[in-house]
Computed example of a mutant assay.
Amino acid sequence: MPIPQTGDRAPDFQLQDQNGNDVKLSQFRGKNVVLYFYPKDDTPGCTREACDFRDEHSALQSAGAVVLGVSPDTTKSHQKFATKFSLPFPLLADTERQVCDAYGVWGEKSLYGRKFQGVTRATFVIDTEGKVARVWPKVKVQGHVREILQTLKGGAPTPGAEEPAPKKTAKKAAPAKKAEPRRK
């Protein structure tokens, strides 16, 4: 399925969290939801991302948001991951990949020339009415949670502004090297 875009109604779902509790997206109406999809528990990039969400969790809550992580791992795997890194938010087990499919994040990936099916790291901010307010279709972990916080604090961006254009920064010119005389 295609990735839901800004203004679309966020597909509702019900999954179990790491403690076996049923979690429905619709139960968070009235709050902003940061719904992030990640490939696998306890792997380097996913751990870094989860720990960034953990470290900024109180700021995210202060901004009126609930954080939900989703991957195809089992509730048991999620429980070990959440315990190991003291993650204070639900990790949802999408073992059948129905939610990953509904959000368009399951598909062909490539790593070291090998093609396989997996989850594309993506984040959706869902507004208080259950609509997609912002989409990051291919997340780069570094600085991502700060971007989400800026979005939450600054309000919803204009529709169609899915991914901010990279800021162009003037590079400092490197000092000119003295030409060495050519040897014959």
Results as ranks from 00 to 15, higher is better:
residue 94 D to C: 10
residue 71 S to F: 12
residue 1 M to G: 09
residue 40 K to H: 11
residue 45 G to Y: 05
residue 136 W to G: 03
residue 65 A to P: 09
residue 78 H to F: 03
residue 92 L to H: 08
residue 82 A to N: 02
residue 144 H to I: 05
residue 164 P to G: 05
residue 143 G to E: 14
residue 115 K to V: 11
residue 18 Q to W: 03
residue 127 D to N: 15
residue 71 S to E: 11
residue 25 L to Q: 02
residue 182 R to G: 08
residue 180 E to N: 11
residue 110 S to Q: 15
residue 71 S to H: 09
residue 169 T to Q: 12
residue 162 E to K: 03
residue 107 G to Q: 09
residue 55 D to R: 04
residue 25 L to P: 06
residue 28 F to M: 00
residue 22 D to N: 14
residue 63 A to C: 12
residue 107 G to C: 09
residue 24 K to R: 15
residue 9 R to W: 05
residue 143 G to F: 04
residue 9 R to E: 11
residue 88 P to D: 03
residue 15 L to N: 02
residue 155 G to R: 02
residue 139 V to I: 13
residue 126 I to S: 03
residue 41 D to I: 14
residue 23 V to C: 07
residue 88 P to N: 03
residue 37 F to H: 05
residue 32 N to C: 01
residue 26 S to R: 13
residue 98 Q to C: 01
residue 52 D to F: 01
residue 152 L to N: 08
residue 108 E to A: 15
residue 45 G to M: 09
residue 170 A to Q: 08
residue 52 D to L: 01
residue 104 G to P: 00
residue 141 V to E: 00
residue 164 P to C: 04
residue 124 F to Q: 04
residue 49 E to I: 07
residue 126 I to P: 12
residue 81 F to G: 04
residue 112 Y to N: 10
residue 76 K to Q: 14
residue 69 G to E: 06
residue 38 Y to T: 06
residue 101 D to N: 15
residue 136 W to C: 09
residue 95 T to H: 03
residue 84 K to S: 09
residue 84 K to P: 06
residue 109 K to L: 07
residue 127 D to M: 06
residue 80 K to M: 04
residue 74 T to M: 02
residue 73 D to I: 06
residue 75 T to R: 13
residue 181 P to Y: 03
residue 56 E to R: 15
residue 1 M to R: 12
residue 102 A to R: 08
residue 103 Y to Q: 03
residue 90 P to L: 00
residue 1 M to E: 08
residue 38 Y to N: 04
residue 91 L to G: 00
residue 180 E to M: 10
residue 51 C to R: 13
residue 163 E to M: 13
residue 75 T to F: 00
residue 110 S to Y: 06
residue 167 K to R: 10
residue 136 W to N: 13
residue 72 P to E: 10
residue 178 K to C: 00
residue 167 K to Q: 13
residue 115 K to Q: 11
residue 157 P to V: 10
residue 161 A to R: 14
residue 38 Y to S: 06
residue 124 F to I: 04
residue 18 Q to K: 07
residue 41 D to K: 08
residue 94 D to P: 01
residue 80 K to H: 14
residue 138 K to D: 11
residue 142 Q to T: 15
residue 41 D to R: 09
residue 46 C to Y: 12
residue 164 P to Q: 14
residue 149 L to I: 08
residue 68 L to K: 09
residue 107 G to W: 12
residue 78 H to Q: 11
residue 32 N to V: 00
